[in-house]
Every structure is written in C-alpha cells, then in structure tokens.
C-alpha cells in the first residue's frame, strides 16, 4: 500500500491505496464519481480525461498514487464554474453532444486549453482536441462549440 494525499474536487482524500490502482478506478470506486468515462484504456480516446494540477491526463493510464500531493478535478468538480456554464451553453446550442460518452472528456480538455490561453483558430483547435475521440458527432459541432468557448475567454 502507498499513501495518497490528494484533493479531489475540493475534498481532501488521505488514503492508503494499492500501488496498481488506476486514478480512473479510484475516482469511480472510492469517490463515486461516474461522470468520467472509460473507453479505449490505452490513452487514445480522451473520454477519461481529468485535470491533475490543471493539466489534462488520461485517468485510465494514470496511477492513483501518482496524484499524491496533487489537486484533481473531474467534470463533477467544475459544474459550478463560469467556464463550465459557457461550455455547457456552447455544447447545447451547437448540439455538439450525441451519446455523450465522450463529452465530459472534451469539456475537461477544453478547460485545460482555456487555462493555457490556447488559440481558438480551427487548426489549433483541431490539433489540441486530436486526443479526444468522438464516434457520433463527426467533430464539426464540437469544434464550433470549442471555438466559441475558447474565443470567449
């Protein structure tokens, strides 16, 4: 067992965890956060994206104990933020959500892009969102929503 002292969505978790527990499973099984989704398991799809100290990581391939001493944010933790409200209204108005399985991952990646002061032009957005897969939308509406969200900052 290893120590994990982590702030998750504003609440401190000071625990002993098995060293092989993934952050994704810790969030689900220990904290009860199910908004983050798992699909590919190999850091390709981005549906499991959470922020660790503000940086987007794939929680499917990130050990829980690696988050020791860090601040973790998931979709549940940002629901009240101004950023989230902007993101939600852009995703709704562009109908950039279909099955929704990928959506929280996109929102978390966009939060990191906004924090980073990333550019809102199409080429930049295509590049910075290329680590998030979506099988339903064909991306056009997501990129349009993203341009609005990132452009408004």
């Amino acid at each position: 067992m290893v120590r994990m002292d982590t702030v998750i969505n504003g609440t401190r978790f000071d625990r002993e965890v098995e060293p092989n527990v993934l952050l994704f499973d810790f969030l689900r099984d220990e904290v009860g956060l199910t908004g983050t989704n798992r699909s590919c398991d190999v850091q390709v799809c981005g549906s499991c994206t959470v922020l660790v100290d503000g940086l987007p990581v794939s929680s499917c391939t990130f050990l829980a104990c690696e988050a020791d001493g860090s601040v973790v944010e998931t979709i549940e933790g940002i629901r009240d933020s101004d950023f989230y409200k902007r993101a939600e209204s852009a995703f709704v108005s562009h109908a950039a959500v279909q099955c929704g399985f990928c959506t929280p991952g996109f929102v978390m990646t966009l939060k990191a892009i906004v924090q980073d002061g990333g550019g809102a032009d199409e080429a930049q957005l295509r590049r910075s969102l290329s680590g998030n897969l979506c099988r339903c939308t064909g991306y056009r509406s997501i990129l349009d929503a993203a341009a609005e969200i990132v452009g408004e900052q």
Binding site: G35, E88, F91, V97
Partner: peptide, 19 residues
C-alpha cells in the same frame, strides 16, 4: 431545432450508462 432534452445531463456527466 429544439435543444436536445438530454444534452445537459450528458455534458455535466450526470447521465447514467450501464457501467
């Protein structure tokens, strides 16, 4: 183009899937 009735739940992660 009425907004999707399930959009908000899916964006904020509260929509439930079997898993």
């Amino acid at each position: 183009s009425f907004p999707r009735v399930d959009a908000v739940a899916k964006i904020n992660g509260s929509a439930d899937y079997v898993g």
